[in-house]
Design a protein around this nucleic acid. Structure first.
Length: 470
RNA sequence: GGCGGAGUAGCCAAGUGGUAAGGCACGGCUCUGCAAAAGCUGUAUUCGUCGGUUCGAUUCCGACCUCCGCCUCCA
């Protein structure tokens, strides 16, 4: 069964066939963060989605090269650098570090390459020079260089591959900032922005004078440097479809660096946005959360990851605190089953059960249908629990665990946090056992309440009691 | 106005031209000194509304209603 992907280019489900003739290597680029602040959970939905795609491709046996840019120069960053009287590198470094910490908290694999825009100014300038040489970019009176959509279309290229653009009907210009009036046409976009006083020290020399890259160009320059002029997969949030990705295509294909008939990117996948408590996230509504905010509320990275992974990436997802609590319960169910399986399996080593993996990957093959895959996982949990109630062999438990390892390579939930009770509580637990034997249930229940007050619940199992974190 | 997406149980969420996965929550049962925990188990005559095609539609077609996103800051 082959993986099928809903390609934004065609809006259709297409079989995934890598450009690599050997069908082995896959280039994956995902638009990364603009490091001007801590990333919010909406951002992380996209990055968890990218991580899922990467892990699933690896599960399928592909050799993935995963690239994610760090946009570390941009209007908002420059503004904040000025406000904070700091340097660009110091300011962006702080949020970049936090971003990678957050990715780790969410158990996202670190991309193989995470190029910074500021370290690819040479590549960016080279690309702009190619565009100027081909006549699809021009230097305006303000010293900036713009991409000409009209010239680009004049070369027979299509602008509007990802979105159906109707230039006559577009309400163009409503939000165009006033400093861009030098453009020949409102739809044109900046490749190189001429230095202005507000930029402070943030400027690089270029053939067009000092300045800095425009918004879209860094992704074109860095993705093509890392993965070649034509690569397999490009991911990002749905808001990037237009203009960011449309402009990336225009810049990349307009430079004439692909072989005839080749495209910049073969498959585009876009993740839908998040709602929080049913509303669009906004600071004024109080439903704007960074990952750190949620950790502060006592939720864990794996709970957040799980919740994000229960929804189909292409559909808007309502992220709620109630959902996080449900995630905690669902994870508890999986953890419980795994713990019992481990106990049963002991040291038995076994191979995964291919019959189990088949429906799991069949679901994911359908454009990353995680819901179907979770259905398989929970059916598996129930079946294991039934067997654990009698009739399961250590070998069968070993097979089940090996199967889980495979599935979990895709979902990457990590393992349940170890919760070893402190000795004084274990002593209380023993005391309770003693008084229960003596039928002093009053004292036994008092101990139970005391432990509960300290955050531990007693689980009386066939093998005796154990303490569990509340 | 243009373009795109969505409406399935209390909540989240799959799916299919042949009679509705899964998770959370809730009820029942097992276990227990009682509990808890855990496990098992039950729960949508019905898939936004109205028509049409069909032996049969939640699934296809048409109309309508509602919600959401994008249209040059945005994951």
């Amino acid at each position: 069964m082959a993986l099928q992907i809903l390609n934004t280019l065609s809006r259709q489900l297409e079989p995934f066939i890598p450009l690599d003739p050997a069908g082995k290597n896959v280039g994956l680029y995902c638009c990364g963060p603009t490091v001007h602040d801590f990333a919010h959970i909406g951002n992380f939905r996209t990055f968890i989605f990218a991580d899922l795609v990467r892990r699933y491709l690896e599960f399928k046996g592909f050799n993935v090269q995963h690239v994610m840019n760090i946009t570390d120069v941009e209007d908002k960053i420059i503004k904040r650098v000025r406000e904070n009287k700091t340097t660009l590198r110091e300011f962006t470094g702080k949020f970049e570090t936090a971003f990678f910490e957050d990715l780790q908290t969410l158990n996202c694999l670190r991309p193989h390459q995470t190029p910074r825009a500021t370290e690819h100014i040479t590549e960016i300038i080279d690309l702009i020079e190619k565009l100027v040489a081909r006549g699809v970019a021009y230097k305006a009176a303000d010293g900036s260089v713009y991409f000409s959509i009209e010239k680009y279309r004049g070369c027979g290229c299509q602008y509007g591959q990802l979105v159906n653009l109707n230039f006559e009907e577009m309400r163009v210009g409503e939000r165009v900032s006033s400093d861009e009036y030098e453009k020949e046409s409102l739809a044109d976009f900046a490749l190189w922005k001429a230095r202005v006083p507000e930029d402070g020290d943030v400027a690089w020399p270029s053939p067009w004078g000092e300045g800095r890259p425009g918004w879209h160009i860094e992704c074109s320059a860095m993705s093509m440097k890392a993965l070649g002029a034509s690569f397999d997969l490009h991911l990002g949030g749905e808001d990037l479809i237009f203009p960011h990705h449309e402009d990336e295509i225009a810049q990349s294909e307009g430079a004439g660096v692909q072989q005839p008939g080749e495209r910049f990117v073969k498959y585009w996948m876009h993740g839908a946005h998040l709602l929080v408590e049913g509303k669009k996230m906004s600071k004024s509504l109080g439903n704007f959360f960074t990952l750190r905010d949620l950790l502060g509320k006592g939720f864990t990275g794996r709970e957040i990851r799980y919740l994000m992974l229960t929804s189909y990436y292409r559909e808007q997802f309502n992220f709620t605190i109630e959902g996080l609590q449900g995630a905690r319960a669902a994870l508890g169910r999986i953890d419980e089953c795994l713990a019992k399986l481990r106990e049963m399996a002991g040291t038995v080593a076994a191979d995964a059960d291919p019959e189990m993996l088949e429906p799991f990957s069949k679901a994911l093959d359908h454009d990353m249908n995680v819901s179907g895959a979770w259905g398989v996982v929970f059916d598996w949990v129930r079946e294991n629990n039934r067997l654990l109630n009698g009739g399961m062999t250590p070998e069968a438990a070993g097979t089940a665990l090996a199967t889980w390892e495979k599935m979990n390579a895709v979902f990457a939930l990590g393992s349940a946090p170890e919760a070893e009770a402190p000795p004084e509580l274990l002593a209380l637990l023993e005391e309770r056992q003693a008084v229960r034997k003596a039928k002093d249930f009053k004292r036994a229940d008092a101990i139970r309440d005391e432990l509960k007050a300290k955050g531990w619940i007693i689980e009386d199992t066939a093998k005796g009691p154990r303490l569990k974190r509340l």
